[in-house]
Design a protein around this nucleic acid. Sequence first.
RNA 1: GGCAGGUUGCCCGAGUGGCCAAAGGGAGCAGACUGUAAAUCUGCCGGCAUCGCCUACGUUGGUUCGAACCCAACACCUGCCA
Length: 434
Amino acid sequence: MTATGSGQMTATGSGQMTGTGSGQMTATGGTGFAFEIGARLPGHLGRTGTITTPHGQIRTPAFVAVGTKATVKAVLPESMAALGAQAVLANAYHLYLQPGADVVDGAGGLSRFMNWPGPTFTDSGGFQVMSLGVGFKKVLAMDTAGLENDDVIATGRTRLASVDDDGVTFTSHLDGSRHRFTPEVSMQIQHQLGADVMFAFDELTTLMNTRGYQEQSVERTHAWAARCLAEHQKLTRERAHRPYQALFGVIQGAQYEDLRRSAARGLAELDVNGQRFDGYCIGGALEKSILGTITGWVTSELPEGKPRHMLGISEPDDIFVCIENGADTFDCVSPSRVARNAAVYTRDGRFNVNTAASRRAYEPIDAECDCYTCANYTRAYLHHLFKAKEMLASTLCTIHNERFIVSLVDRIAQSITDQTYEANKAETLGRYYG
RNA sequence: GGCAGGUUGCCCGAGUGGCCAAAGGGAGCAGACUGUAAAUCUGCCGGCAUCGCCUACGUUGGUUCGAACCCAACACCUGCCA
């Protein structure tokens, strides 16, 4: 395991760097974007594959690191490449507010702006419809019983976003200024940001919403998806001198099978003037206990030959269950956010390094981990850095956590190829949650 | 030596008769975080413990039904005068 991990790490890092400068890739139908399926997981919907973008390839399944404001918080792009990260996902809403999409465009696009030569993704701002709106961060829950209520608003929070059928009005959390996002605006921003993969502007509901609201929201997201495709087609023509940017549609529908399936089918069939989605995202309110089932409903409605991205997922059990149900890529803030708050992942579960137990623990976070942090630093030192409020603590723990997830996903990919998936799953989850 | 001010829980610091085991910080201890308003947030934080009891606001004594809060002496610290 360790040998495999470090070997992959090196290959990824160098592959990314060289693939970048040379520009266009292999057979991509003239767009620079393509997806090719590799091995399949017998008895399941899972598969390995390769996504080709103008900025390089992504071997799937893959974890995409979140760098909301064009930076993976606390970590250098070089470190992200060294730990095996294949792609980075930034956020249209945040970059639109600061520094402004035109500034990123002027730099030559997100990749150049942030010095990440590999593939990049941007989220549409759809997540902020929810996180700045009703404000319920909890979109994952074990149990939805008794939660339904469209009027619930998180206590103590000011609502900064409100939705209507045409779009969303935001109040900037930075300066209180008012902004209007529509599917067209999101596409314009994302084209200026210039990521290889863009996401359609969607409405993200929570598990608190009523069935009626979820239906209405799925319809709205579908209508927005069509508008995104139309605007995308127009912008792609206007910006033909720029590298091709792929567009993924986002499937909502919460925990309802009929809604999820019809939403998936609707986007799979959606064709606006010959323009279709290059891939799909599975997002929104996801009930953890049936996460795999939901993923399966959706992927079985989607075309096989296009990649599926899982929005906001990174817990080990969730990753397994999504991959075997046909998800190809993931993104999540968790490894990074949690690291800044002193929580670290290990093969034997997660713990907080800032507790007294690590004060004199002169050993790495995880003896089996091949990351830079575990190779060079002890828990005692990290504990000290957190207590002393030194920012290196965030850097080192983020490197470790990102590597943990990347390496977990890499091992899953390898086990699909090797046909040892079930054994790998049983062992990995048994240890992690045991 | 004279005049004036101060001494509060691990630290800083409110509180000037009962609603005070004592505000608020910090530290400490633990927990949470799933398309990032997050280097954030939550809980505990004198002891034993079920209400409750015990020990506590420099020390000792006093006034009072009742004192961290009022009085006296003492100890130490801090300003101005010699």
